[in-house]
Simulated assay, not measured.
Amino acid sequence: MSHVLSFAPVFPAMLRTEDGVRIDAAHIPPAGGEARADLGIVVAHGFTGSWRERTARRIAHVLSRYGGVVAFDFRGHGRSGGLTTVGDLEILDVEAAVRHARVVGYSRIAVVGFSMGAAVAVRHAALRRGVDAVAAVSGPARWYYRGTRPMRQVHWAIERPVGRLAARVAKRTRIARGPWDPVPMPPHEAVRLIAPAPLLIVHGDADSFFPLDHPYELFEGAREPKELWIEPGYGHAEAAATPELIRRIGMWIGSNLL
């Protein structure tokens, strides 16, 4: 199983969403004596990501020291079926992963999302409820943001046929065509519905995708209990996340789910 996670036991799973999409997932049980047996941590990757990528596997490995981990590929990504809607129907993918975490025995569930996964984690917690904590890392506050070059490239990949082809070939990401109809509730509105579940917003001051007005807008819109970490020198999402940052997120989850 060297193609998945070589430094911790991994139990692959194929989940199915409420709308019938197959989701490629894995369960990493709690590792080490201090990890909680009742805590499940669902990890939601960013756009064009995958739980099988090395950066995502490292994050899952670190978080498994605090509880069991369920990692998965969003629809249209990697080995999952369907097409990505870039933040809309993906709440059903998170719901399938949360349900799997409960089936394998976890009574307390936290969701940690990165970038697109952060937006989905916020929307899932607000609209579907049923999770005990949310950590949104490097997430956008609002849709259609084009103020940085990386986000203009993302919109090119989503909106242009040649961009969708490039994403399919280079990143194994299959993108649904056409605009949202209706437009889903944006994160800065959904965030106010998360309470009483605790919310952690993590953002880097060196994020090249979303500037700092995004985490501040999310934080201002959220209700207590909430916490905001602006990380000096931190870039964007999984690729820039250090083991120390992930450990701090794991400790935050544990301290808020006593």
Results as ranks from 00 to 15, higher is better:
V69E: 02
R54K: 15
V43Y: 10
A56V: 08
A44W: 03
R79N: 15
A25W: 04
D93E: 02
Y106F: 08
W51Q: 07
G105Q: 08
G40F: 00
P29H: 00
V111C: 10
A96I: 06
Y106S: 05
I91Q: 00
I23N: 01
D88M: 08
R52F: 10
F47M: 03
H45M: 02
I109Y: 14
V111G: 10
R22V: 11
L92K: 00
H61A: 15
R79P: 13
V94M: 05
G46M: 12
F72C: 09
L92R: 04
S64C: 03
R22A: 14
T84Q: 03
A25S: 01
L39C: 02
A101I: 07
I41Y: 03
I91H: 00
I41F: 04
A101W: 06
H27G: 00
F74S: 08
V69K: 07
T55M: 11
V112M: 05
H77N: 08
I59S: 14
V103T: 11
I109D: 14
A26D: 13
V98N: 06
A37D: 09
I109W: 14
G78W: 12
G67E: 10
V112N: 07
A71Y: 09
L89W: 06
S64I: 03
V69T: 07
A37C: 10
L39M: 06
S50D: 03
P30W: 13
I59E: 13
A26V: 15
V104H: 10
R75H: 09
A96L: 00
V86F: 04
D38G: 04
I109C: 14
Y66Q: 07
S107R: 05
H100I: 13
L39Y: 04
H45A: 01
A25N: 01
L83I: 11
R108Y: 07
D24H: 04
Y106H: 08
R57V: 14
L92I: 02
A96V: 04
V42W: 02
A31M: 14
V104M: 09
V70Q: 12
E90V: 01
G33P: 14
T48C: 10
G78L: 12
E95A: 00
I109S: 12
D93V: 01
A44H: 02
G81W: 11
R65V: 13
V104T: 13
S107T: 09
D93W: 03
G87V: 00
A96Y: 02
T48S: 06
H100A: 07
A60D: 13
G82P: 15
V111D: 07
L83G: 11
R36E: 04
D24F: 07
G76R: 07
G78Y: 13
G33M: 12
R79W: 14
V70L: 12
D93C: 02
F47H: 07
E34T: 13
I28R: 05
R108S: 09
Y66L: 05
T85K: 01
T48Y: 03
E34H: 08
Y66I: 08
A56P: 11
E34F: 12
G40P: 06
A56F: 10
P30M: 10
L83E: 15
F72L: 06
H45I: 02
R52P: 11
I41P: 05
R75A: 05
V98K: 09
A60E: 07
G87L: 02
